[in-house]
Design a protein around this nucleic acid. Structure first.
Lengths: 347, 347
DNA sequence: AGGCAGCGTGGGAGCGCTCCCGAGGCGGTA
DNA sequence: TACCGCCTCGGGAGCGCTCCCACGCTGCCT
């Protein structure tokens, strides 16, 4: 024996099989299998014998064989549409993954990462799913017209979305309270005395962006009998989009004294436009972002922003998915998690 | 269930098997298998018949069965040590993943994401690998004393590192030219006329941090017969680390007129310390970062920094891994990729 | 005409596991 | 003592695929 697994020298490291474990333990294959899968219907004697044999041989079950026999794969996929690959550079995504992975590590499940960037990859994914390659799917960054959720529904594969497509999302999801967070942000601006409050929205085919806009509107409406004007500029979630939207807003409404941006990156762009226009932040125009992403701490001035419990969202998604996998017929579950205002210097 | 694959209503969408495909095509299982796996030893007639049957039934091979029969899994793992989970929020990581995924999508391989955050998870990974759960491993953010690469070597599993542990890395790797990038950065500072150039390093148990320090030293040494003083402060790769290191540097060497930071996050911290000390950037002190991460564009002023071809590195890693998987005996390959200076306002 | 490659083909064996059924062993009751 | 029920246990069957061997056919050489 000259390797750490204690296998005999020479041969190409053949993994021991259940059969060999059973033989060494002096029991049958069935009993060995029961022990390994934690069935209660095993005598104490048999259990310890098998456990000893497992330890001695360094036995690890062959997943492919198990998957073939059970037609479960013990794997779930985290699917990321390509358009959102930039997501990766957001703590949002890092935290989702971190939460997912943490929750998953308590189980035997594996995490498959699937990026879908074009039609070809979409079909590839579709084939995966049809072939029962995974027990469930986690889907992030859902657009309203995304074909992926529809496909998941059709296939009847357990699935949980991060975010939702609309208020009546048929699939399970975990979402942040986007409307509430936005309202909180705008209330903060109102409290500071701002009265000409604009918003730069994200792409409105995403429910999250819509909800943030709705929250903005709700805050305005509940203040001073809704007499404050709505100042809305639509952008995508990019920095240049934020810059352009803010520039347009300044032109359209020079008296603007605050802006709620639907993301930090958007806010970073808005800050650039404000600086270019010679406005001081927060003295002339107060700015609030959303996400509490890494850029929020590094802009000048650092951004006041809305934080979502992202890591916890990742964990919750996994928990929901496991429930669905364990109990396929069960009702879909929806979970909306509270957000939190992080006050820095920009508002 | 009336679904788009055109299966009969009622039953729980049973996937067709090779056997059924063969039957429908009027050939044997062997022939059907050959067609599906693109073997050339098949008549044209049989090939088209099988292809028609596959299309008609919507056949997708069962991977578990294939894996069991071939003892290959058609999956590779991307392993991320937990300490580096913050990596996720770097474009570095996003680009690595993006490159990996792009290259992988040309194959049948799946990408497993494995976060290793503690001893328990380390053992779990170890069990995975021993159980032959993956055909190969991609490992990022390697520390010098990391047990993972050692384990991979012992197990003889095909593996490629992002970065290396030292100059004589026995495993295959793809790395950026860290030393070259650093030298380039410092040369840039010299060209600007800086003469008291400091550096804030990363943790020196990472070869990348060492190499950047070496590049800094090389640039100083090759200039003016090496008469310029070395001003080194060691930090970890965090913002607060950069702030502390810079503060210390200012105290130790008040005349410092430039600082090369081993990462952008470090540089962001350094900027804070400089601002706190009343130094203007770049007029009083020029600053250069490394990575061209997302923070680099958002600091005040935006950072001059060194970019690495990260996405291409991800692709290259996959290519090397595939070679190793296809040809297990082959010599390890090492690839060092050029870096590029991105000049913004901080230097 | 006979023999012999060479090719395409069919199907048996087997990958390692779980599921399940029937066989015992045991204690308790009549 | 005879019988019954409950548990534990062993091992056959089978999951869907690939690998490989043996078979028959064609076409060419002797």
């Amino acid at each position: 024996m000259n390797d750490s697994a204690g296998r005999p020298a020479g041969g190409p490291a053949a993994r021991p099989t259940l059969e060999e474990v059973a033989a060494l333990a002096g029991v049958g294959r069935g009993t060995a299998s029961r022990v390994i899968n934690g069935s209660p219907r095993v005598s104490e004697k048999a259990r310890t014998a098998v456990e000893r044999a497992v330890a001695e041989l360094g036995y690890v079950p062959n997943r492919a064989a198990r998957a073939l026999a059970t037609s479960r794969t013990d794997a779930i996929a985290l699917v990321v549409p390509e358009a959102e690959t930039r997501l990766f550079s957001e703590p949002y995504f890092a935290d989702i993954i971190s939460g997912v992975s943490a929750e998953l590590s308590r189980t035997q499940l594996q995490l498959l990462l699937v990026l879908v960037r074009d039609q070809r990859e979409h079909e590839r994914l579709s084939a995966y799913l049809r072939a029962d390659r995974v027990d469930g799917v986690l889907l992030v960054a859902v657009h309203q017209d995304d074909p992926l959720p529809v496909m998941l529904e059709d296939l009847g594969i357990p699935a949980v979305l991060a975010g939702r497509r609309g208020e009546h999302e048929p699939l399970s999801y975990v979402a942040a309270d986007n409307a509430g967070g936005a309202r909180m942000a705008v209330r903060h601006l109102l409290r500071r005395g701002c009265r000409r409050i604009a918003t730069v929205t994200g792409p409105l085919d995403m429910e999250g962006a819509q909800a943030r806009l709705a929250g903005y509107r709700a805050a305005l409406a509940e203040s001073e009998a809704g007499t404050l004007p709505e100042l809305v500029a639509v952008a995508d979630f990019t920095e240049s989009g934020g810059r352009a939207a803010m520039a347009e807003l300044l032109e359209r409404e020079p008296g603007v004294d605050a802006v709620f941006c639907a993301s930090d990156v958007l806010a970073a762009g808005a800050l650039q436009a404000l600086r270019a226009a010679g406005r001081r932040v927060p003295q002339d125009v107060a700015v609030v972002g959303f996400d509490d992403s890494i850029v929020a701490r590094h802009t000048d001035p650092p951004l006041t922003t809305v934080r979502q419990p992202t890591q916890e969202m990742g964990r919750a998604m996994v928990r929901q998915l496991l429930e669905q996998i364990a109990e396929p017929g069960r009702a879909r579950r929806q979970l909306v998690m509270a957000t939190e205002l992080v006050v820095r210097d920009s508002a």
